[in-house]
Nucleic acid binder design. Structure first.
Length: 322
DNA sequence: AATGGTCAAGCGGCA
DNA sequence: TGCCGCTTGACCATT
C-alpha cells in the first residue's frame, strides 16, 4: 500500500497578511542613513517572516497538512556581501528555534527550494561561490531551527552554457568542491528546458543524491516521454534517505504557456500518476505547485475525495483502494 | 485605494 | 558584447 501525502509551497491564499517573504531591497537598504537602524529593520522583517511561517504551519496543522516548502526569502539580504557582518542567526535564534520545534513536534516535513540563481555547475568561480553562500544560508536556518538538514534543499543541475554534456559533467566535478554538510542537504529535480529526468538520474545515481521527479517538467522536457520505465531508479535514489520519496506536481497553464503553472491541478492527470505508481513504495510526498497554493490542494483533495476508489486517512493523506 | 514601475538574481536568446 | 526577457512577490511612487 502506498500512502500519498499532499503539501504546498510557501504561502497561503486563505491566511491573510501572513507573507513569509516580506523584503527590503539592497537599493533601499543603501539609502537608509543609519546602518544600525536599517539592520534592525531587516531583523523586524525577518522575525515577521518567520512568525508568519509559524502561523502557516499552524494553519496547516488544523487541516492535517504536514508537508510544506518554506520560503527562501525568510531573511532579506542575508546572503548579500555587504551584510557579511550581520549575525542574523544570533538575532533570530529564538524565532527560528520556535519554528523548528513546532514543525518537529507536529511531525511536519519542511524544506526549501532556493531559486535558480544557485548554480552548482557554473563555469564561473564567483557564481559557484555565491551559490555555496546561498546554500550555507539555508543550512544555517535549518540548523538553527533544530532540523536535520539532510535532504532539505531542492536544486536543478544548472545551465547548459552552450554545451550541455560538458556542463552536466561540470556539475559532477564541482560537486567535489561542495562542503560535505551542504552536499547532504541537496536533492536534484529535472527542469523544464535543459536537464531531463534521464540526465538527473545519471547524476543522482553517480553522486548518491535523491531525485525529485517533476511530472510537469518532464512533459515539457524529455528524451523519452515514458517516465514509468525509470520509476524504480527514481525510488532507488531515495533508498538511504531518512525522508519519504518526494515529487512535484503541477499542471500547464495552457497549451501556449505550457511551462507556466496553472492555478489548479488537473485531477485526472494526477490520478493517472497515482495509479501508475501505486504499490511501488510505502509513501510518496507530492508537493503541489499551483498558483492558488493551498486552495489548489483543497480543491484537489475535494475532487479526489469524490472518487470511490480513493480513501483519505487525514485531510491531506490518502491511499488507493483495491 | 488602485495602478504601473522597480527590485533582485543568472541564464539564454537575440541583434 | 551588451541588452532584454524570464520569474516572483513585495514594495514604492504616482494617480
Amino acid at each position: 500500500m502506498t500512502l500519498f501525502r499532499l503539501g504546498y509551497v510557501a504561502m497561503s491564499v486563505h491566511v491573510q497578511n501572513a507573507s513569509p517573504s516580506q523584503t527590503m531591497t539592497y537599493s533601499r537598504f543603501q539609502k537608509l542613513q543609519d546602518r544600525e537602524a536599517a539592520i534592525a529593520k531587516l531583523e523586524r522583517i525577518s522575525k515577521s517572516n518567520i512568525n508568519n511561517t509559524l502561523r502557516l504551519l499552524k494553519h496547516n496543522k488544523a487541516l492535517d497538512i504536514e508537508f510544506f516548502r518554506l520560503s527562501s526569502k525568510l531573511v532579506p539580504l542575508a546572503t548579500h556581501e555587504d551584510l557579511k557582518d550581520w549575525d542574523y542567526i544570533h538575532a533570530l535564534k529564538n524565532e527560528l528555534r520556535e519554528l523548528g520545534s513546532y514543525a518537529k513536534s507536529e511531525n511536519m516535513r519542511i524544506d526549501f527550494h532556493p531559486d535558480h540563481f544557485v548554480v552548482i555547475n557554473s563555469p564561473k568561480e564567483d557564481k559557484f561561490k555565491a551559490s555555496i553562500n546561498v546554500l550555507k544560508y539555508h543550512y544555517k536556518l535549518l540548523h538553527s531551527m533544530g532540523i536535520d538538514p539532510t535532504h532539505r534543499c531542492v536544486l536543478h543541475l544548472g545551465g547548459s552554457y552552450d554545451d550541455k554534456a560538458k556542463s552536466l559533467e561540470r556539475f559532477i566535478e564541482n560537486w567535489g568542491s561542495v562542503p560535505r554538510g551542504i552536499q547532504k542537504m541537496i536533492m536534484i529535480e529535472n527542469d523544464d528546458t535543459i536537464y531531463t529526468m534521464d540526465d538527473c538520474l545519471y547524476v543522482c545515481e553517480k553522486l548518491g543524491i535523491p531525485f525529485i521527479f517533476d511530472l510537469h517538467h518532464h512533459m515539457a522536457n524529455h528524451e523519452d516521454s515514458n517516465w514509468l520505465k525509470n520509476w524504480d531508479r527514481v525510488l532507488n535514489t531515495w533508498e538511504h534517505s531518512p525522508l519519504p520519496v518526494k515529487m512535484h506536481i503541477s499542471s500547464p497553464k495552457s497549451e501556449a504557456e505550457f511551462k507556466s503553472h496553472a492555478d489548479y491541478i488537473d485531477p485526472e492527470m494526477f490520478l493517472n500518476f497515482v495509479k501508475s505508481v501505486n504499490q511501488s513504495t510505502d509513501q510518496i510526498d507530492c508537493m503541489i505547485e499551483a498558483k492558488k497554493k493551498d486552495d489548489a490542494l483543497f480543491i484537489l483533495r475535494k475532487t479526489l475525495g469524490e472518487q470511490s476508489n480513493i480513501e483519505f486517512n487525514t485531510e491531506a493523506t490518502f491511499q488507493l483502494k483495491d
